[in-house]
Computed example of a mutant assay.
Amino acid sequence: MMSTDIRKLLAISPKFKSRITGVTTSTYSLVKSLRRKNYDIRMIGLGPTESIPKIHFLKIFQLHKKPDDADYRIFHARRHSDMIFGIILKYFFKTRIKLIFTAAKQRPYSKFSKIIIRYMDHVIVTSHKTTPYVEPIFQKNNKKQMLTVITHGVDTVRFKPSHNKIALKKKLSLDPDINYIGCFGRIRPEKGTDLFINSICKVLPSAPNWGALVVGRTTPKFNKFLNKLQKAVDDNNLESRVIFIDETSDIEDFYKVLDLYIAPSLYEGFGLTPLEAMACSVPVIATDVGYYREIINDDCGYIVEKCEKDMSKHINLYINNTEKLQEHSEKSRLRIQRHFNHEDEVQKILNLYKELQNYKSI
């Protein structure tokens, strides 16, 4: 078991949001992987952190001393609140930390965002598409070298095909005779959930062996939006085949029962759900946002222009061609293993951490 001694602590990963998001999932995955490599990283913040050890807030008063095995600790931020907390730790409490921010946004940053990002010691951008929005922030300070492109990967041990899809469907109380099309993530207009439901309502009436799973959380602000989607399903007499499920920590099980995944977002910074689906051998149809075009090629899915209001044509290409569906299913996981493996991402981040903190190799 790894030591709880604060002197051994090498990195801190903050968490100030209680709900589960793509950022939360990728953070947990990274921290767990680093700890498996005997790199002492812990979390600080609010709410549960699964099996990952947390630092008590009072421990921050001990962070002004350098750790045993490096000159600095790493503080890895993902959100504004994380960056602000890190800035307070470094400049008000005089802790020996290097501030890292992971940026995925593919649109201009606000003036406030630019101000706090300038305090970072290094920025990881998740794709070359993000670089043009971050690079100018540092040009005045001649800090272009502070950027590193590290593309997200997916844990192919957690996200993998099921050995018995029928048994898993029964475990999840799903019809074992239905082929499922999935759309996962927050239920709101920006995620394109309405585009998915509208397309499904055109496809399913003539495809009796197919159904749909919509998995994700709806905040009170979008309850009317959800009600509208459910009414569309009811109006088409599809309520037994289109199932809405609240967010779950066991999301990988729902990917494993799918035969096709739809990512209909109107905007994404990067977009992890296609990676997770493809790792489970599920081909993907996605809008042309985020990093989707780089993830999905002609061997494992289709890219649709985000201005298109109907994806039913592309869905039918798979429903009416089981050979293509099977071929793309097999190639989807291979593409993830070769180009978007989580272990590659972890090793690149670990190397960056050690370089920034002057890690002392034993």
Rank of each mutant, 00 (worst) to 15 (best):
D288Y: 04
P220T: 12
D253L: 07
E276Q: 15
I251C: 04
I243L: 14
S206G: 01
P208C: 13
I251K: 04
P220I: 12
L204G: 03
V289I: 02
K231V: 05
G185I: 02
Y255H: 05
R241M: 10
E268T: 01
A207C: 04
E276H: 13
F225N: 07
R217N: 11
D194M: 01
L204T: 05
N236I: 01
F225H: 13
N209S: 10
N237H: 12
E276K: 14
K221D: 14
T287D: 02
S249V: 00
A263V: 01
K256S: 13
L260E: 09
T248D: 06
D259R: 08
L260F: 05
V257W: 11
L226Y: 12
N236H: 15
D259I: 04
E252R: 10
R293E: 13
W210C: 13
W210E: 09
L229D: 09
P264R: 05
R186L: 14
P220N: 15
V284P: 04
S249Q: 01
F270P: 10
I245W: 01
V257S: 06
N198S: 05
K191P: 02
L272K: 12
G290M: 03
R217Y: 12
L260I: 13
K228D: 15
I187G: 14
P264E: 03
K191S: 06
W210R: 10
A212I: 07
K191L: 08
D288I: 01
L272M: 15
L238M: 08
R293V: 05
I251D: 03
F222V: 15
P264M: 07
F222W: 15
S199H: 02
W210P: 09
T273R: 13
A207S: 11
L260D: 08
P274T: 04
C201H: 12
G290Y: 01
V215C: 09
R241H: 10
V233M: 00
E247K: 05
K256M: 13
V282D: 05
K202A: 12
R241E: 03
S265P: 14
D288E: 06
V233P: 03
K202C: 12
A279M: 13
L258T: 12
L204V: 11
V203A: 00
K202H: 11
D194C: 02
K202G: 11
C201I: 11
D288F: 02
A286I: 08
V284D: 10
G271V: 08
P283T: 06
K191I: 00
N237Y: 09
I243H: 06
G192L: 01
N237F: 14
F270K: 11
E190C: 08
K191E: 04
K231C: 10
F222Y: 15
V233I: 01
R241V: 07
T273H: 12
I187F: 14
N223V: 15
N198P: 00
L260T: 09
Q230Y: 07
S240F: 00
F270V: 11
V257H: 11
G211A: 03
F270N: 09
R188S: 14
Y291D: 14
I251P: 03
A277L: 03
S265A: 15
I200H: 02
D234M: 00
D246M: 02
I251Q: 02
K228M: 12
I262D: 05
A212L: 07
L213K: 07
A277K: 04
T219A: 09
V289S: 01
P220K: 12
V257M: 13
D288T: 05
E247W: 06
P189N: 07
V289N: 02
F225I: 08
L204Y: 05
I197W: 02
W210L: 10
F225P: 08
